[in-house]
């Protein structure tokens, strides 16, 4: 168990709802769900959710910490915002799902091989490095995120698509050699570091 996870377990004991409220993006909204299920029915990836959002909310209230945080479900969010648009209680469900995913990942509870988890982290690292997303590097990293052999297979499968993109000048090999980026990366990194610090401090401050 990660130290952070350990600390959270001790801090909140059985009150998972409170833990979520304090630590998860828009987590204070979880208590407002009335179990209508419109979110569950609205999700384009619905069938792939082991637990749909509304059920996750109920599980949070029921204190099913382990089950929720190790679930692959919230990694199924495509950010289509259908659930938000339709929720009768105006719960920012998309953000809560992102928030839960992020929190689970930080605690080290998210399933290691969940592809979206890996991709999302790759993406973040990719963009924060130079301030802008590098599609080629991201793509290559993506192919190899499940290991070298898998990566070759995926790359082959994607070969034609990649070629098409090169052909139409919508993917540039120049990107490998540095590519786009912002000038003030230092400033950006300082901002992100500070933001992370404030966020952690806020979660610690939260009480009830």
């Amino acid at each position: 168990m990660s130290t952070m996870n350990q600390a959270k377990v001790e801090k909140y004991r059985n009150d998972f709802l409170k833990e979520v409220t304090a630590n998860v993006e828009e987590g204070e909204w979880v208590k407002m769900c009335m179990q209508c299920g419109v979110c569950a029915g609205s999700c384009p990836f619905g069938p792939y959710w082991e637990h749909p959002p509304q059920e996750i909310f109920m599980m949070i209230r029921a204190g099913k910490r382990e089950e929720v945080l190790t679930s692959t479900s919230m990694w199924m969010c495509t950010s289509c915002y259908n659930c938000i648009a339709r929720c009768p209680r105006e719960l920012p469900i998309t953000h809560i799902m992102h928030g839960l995913a992020h929190y689970a990942d930080r605690l080290g509870l998210a399933p290691k091989n969940q592809p979206t988890r890996k991709f999302a982290n790759l993406f973040w690292n990719n963009l924060t490095k130079k301030g802008r997303a590098n599609e080629l590097k991201l793509g290559i990293a993506l192919y190899f995120m499940n290991g070298f052999i898998e990566g070759i297979k995926t790359a082959l499968k994607m070969q034609k698509m990649g070629l098409n993109m090169f052909k139409t000048k919508r993917l540039s090999p120049m990107e490998l050699l540095g590519g786009h980026g912002i000038k003030d990366t230092g400033g950006l990194h300082a901002i992100l570091k500070k933001a992370r610090e404030i966020e952690l401090a806020n979660a610690e401050k939260f009480n009830g």
Partner: peptide
């Protein structure tokens, strides 16, 4: 000038709320 990536809707795993918002805020 010198705009940065917004982190789109997939930056969440790595970034928390505030780092993500900070990108757009910048």
């Amino acid at each position: 000038p010198d705009w940065n990536c917004c982190s789109a809707s997939i930056g969440y795993a790595g970034g928390g709320v505030l780092p993500r918002l900070a990108l757009s805020a910048r």
